[in-house]
Amino acid sequence: MNATQSLTARTGNLFHRYANPGRFLRMGAKLQPWLTWPALVLSAAGIVWGLFFSPADWQQGDSVRIMYVHVPTAWLASSGYMGLAVCSLLSLVWRHPLADLAAVEIGPVGAAITAVCLATGSLWGKPMWGTWWVWDARLTSVLVLFFLYLGHIALIRAFDEPQRGYRAAAILGLAGAVDLPIIKFSVQWWNTLHQPDSITVTGAPTMSTSMLWPLGLTTLGFTLGFGAIVLARLRASVMESRIRTILAASRGRQSASPAPQPDSAAV
């Protein structure tokens, strides 16, 4: 028990070093260009490669190109929720203030990406399978993930007192993480209409390298882009909360001394 105590304490200290908003803003400003520009370059390269230079599939024809945007969004839908679950854990156990703000910002981005994943999958399914939608385990579990995102977005903003919203949303975020292994393994556990993964950790990919390259580029590019957008939103959110604190403090001073101060008048 002693070892775990010191472990939780140590990890807590490690996280709290980045809880200082000033330090976070300085680090975030340095990190931002390293996410934004590679994201733009890699995504553009991957999309152009995938649309114009990669070969058509022998069965699917050109509709295989939908994969180059569908697979990265599917990967991000899951890993974005993983990020949300980690923030929830940090919030519940360590009461980390930055984790709460991050959870607020990841939610809408993840929900939008999941919606794109579902829509692009549908656009592929209609010409290939012959249907827009089926209730198989893979598709249904991703739809559940989308609703989990929507629930999180609503819950974290539902309370007048933000702390209560953070707490409730963190519980939902952690509980919803149960859906992630279900999504991952749905195509192995049950027979589904959705095909199994072509790229696995253990086996060799069942995909031509001429298609793997653009897919790798868009996946990496979209992932960095997701990080860049979340970081930008989080920086804005930290700045906004700082603005609120400063304004509240100056309002407090004004009400304490009714005589208008020259400095606050300049603001």
Binding site: S43, I47, L51, A56, G61, D62, S63, R65, I66, V69, H70, T73, V109, A112, I113, A115, V116, A119, T120, L123, W124, K126, P127, F222, G225, A228, I229, A232, R233, R235, A236, M239
Partner: peptide, 29 residues
């Protein structure tokens, strides 16, 4: 290209959502 409308819709939607998210984040920041 075969299935061109579906491909265009998929890419258009993806790029559209990505643009909205990025511009929104940049403006807010």
């Amino acid at each position: 290209m075969t299935h061109l409308p579906y491909i265009l819709a998929a890419y258009g939607l993806t790029l559209g959502v990505a643009t909205v998210l990025s511009v929104n984040a940049a403006v807010r920041l």
